[in-house]
Amino acid sequence: MATHKRAETLMDSVCEDMEEKPEPYFSFGIIADIQYADIDNGYNFMKTRMRYYRNSLTLLKEAVQEWDSESTKPKFILQLGDIIDGFNVPQKTSDTSLAIILAEMEKLKIPFHHIWGNHEFYNFKRKYLMESKLNSKPLEDEIGQLTINEDTSETRSDQESFYGYHFSPYPGFRFLLIDCYDLSVIGRDTMSIKYGMSLKLLKEKNPNEDLNSPRGLEEEQFVQFNGGVSGAQLNWINSVLASSDEQDEKVVVIGHLPIHLDSTDAICLAWNYKEILSALQSHPCVIGYFAGHDHDGGYSVDASGIHHITFKGVIETPPENQAFGTMYMYEDKMVLKGRGLVLSKTLHYRNGRKEEPVH
């Protein structure tokens, strides 16, 4: 009799555990800063960290194999930018290296959503990127349920347009990809208006001869390898988020550059990160912001309850380790299952009320 009761108690406990762990609505993969090049290992810009250029391809293959082996495959993968390294340029291997990386990704048979980082612009012109497989905007929803007042003047000129879109993989959830190099001197044609604006701003903030140097700067993010978001793009972001507020959606925003100081080194922030952060905090729908760029990674939750995750870079991950993750989305939280250097986390959604942000 006692054994039977013990078995019943054990079974009740198992049932309670099962009730506490419902199936996620959906999942998706995340990987950042692969920076593949067919060259020997070398040090980073500051000569402090080793970069494993060839091995990044091996780590990508392992990530693809693991995503493919999951019992319920991810609905999509977020590739957070810097897919190949700038060292491909002197080697004249940009096209070849990109083709090698994309061939591995295509083995997964699920969509990749691509962000553009500084290394995309070291290797390619914007026009090339818009016509390449790194332009995943064709995966954007044919939105009928959202009414968005977009500034169409932005899209009239290829030289001045930004790369951004949004999609909904599951009812009540939306993902918004933004262009952190909308204002930039590495991603713009030198004859474009935005190049002129960007160069003027950069030189006002950074008097150094080497514009990649933060030496003596009050605002360390104003270096050439970073960029910012234009007023027109901010208006578009606000329009998308306002519509998601009305639809009671939960939104994850994705950009290459971090926008919260506690989630990264100051030198890796977007130029106008405070403006971008303020825009996101003003919309109760936003639950998270995901970025790459800072290979050390980082995490913080801001005063409004938005989770800021900066993902570790594959390029600086030793061969015996890994750096990617799968995010599982639930009604009240998202759960990150990290691999290797990417730590697992349970992230509860903000309460949906507008709060006074504290930066």
Rank of each mutant, 00 (worst) to 15 (best):
Y25I: 06
D294T: 02
T72P: 01
S56P: 01
H166M: 07
E220Q: 13
S71H: 12
E246V: 10
R350S: 15
F45H: 13
D302G: 02
H348A: 12
W116A: 02
E209V: 14
T72C: 11
Q247R: 11
E62R: 15
E204N: 13
L183D: 00
E204Q: 13
P169H: 08
C268M: 14
Q145S: 13
I276G: 00
I178C: 04
M334H: 11
L261N: 12
L336N: 05
V185P: 00
T326I: 15
P90R: 09
P169F: 05
Q79R: 07
C15R: 15
P171W: 08
L217G: 06
H260W: 11
L211R: 04
S198C: 10
P74M: 02
Y299Q: 08
S168M: 04
F225P: 00
G340A: 07
P171D: 13
M1Q: 09
I101C: 03
G86A: 11
H4V: 12
L199D: 11
Y181P: 00
K337D: 07
L183C: 05
Q65Y: 11
Y330I: 05
F167N: 03
A7M: 12
G298D: 04
C285P: 01
I186T: 06
S213C: 10
I101Y: 01
H256Y: 11
H295A: 05
F175T: 01
Y52D: 04
F173K: 07
I110H: 04
P318V: 11
I84H: 00
I100C: 03
M334L: 15
S300A: 15
N88M: 10
L102P: 00
F311G: 01
L139V: 04
N118G: 06
M197F: 12
M46C: 09
P111W: 05
T93L: 05
H359A: 13
V358A: 15
S97I: 02
P319K: 13
H308R: 12
N351W: 07
T147M: 08
N41C: 09
Q233H: 05
L129H: 08
Y128C: 05
M50D: 14
E218L: 14
N118T: 10
K109A: 10
S192Q: 09
G42T: 11
E62W: 07
H283T: 00
I287W: 04
L201M: 14
D182C: 08
A103C: 10
R188S: 09
E249D: 14
I110Q: 06
D302E: 13
S56Y: 01
L347P: 01
G81L: 07
K333I: 03
A7L: 15
E23V: 07
F167R: 02
F311T: 07
K125S: 14
P207R: 10
G117K: 02
Q281F: 09
F76Q: 00
Y163V: 04
I276N: 00
V253E: 02
F225S: 03
Q247I: 05
K133W: 02
D82Q: 09
P318K: 12
G288N: 09
R126T: 05
A291T: 12
A32F: 04
N208H: 08
Q65E: 15
K137R: 15
I237Q: 00
V185W: 00
L277I: 08
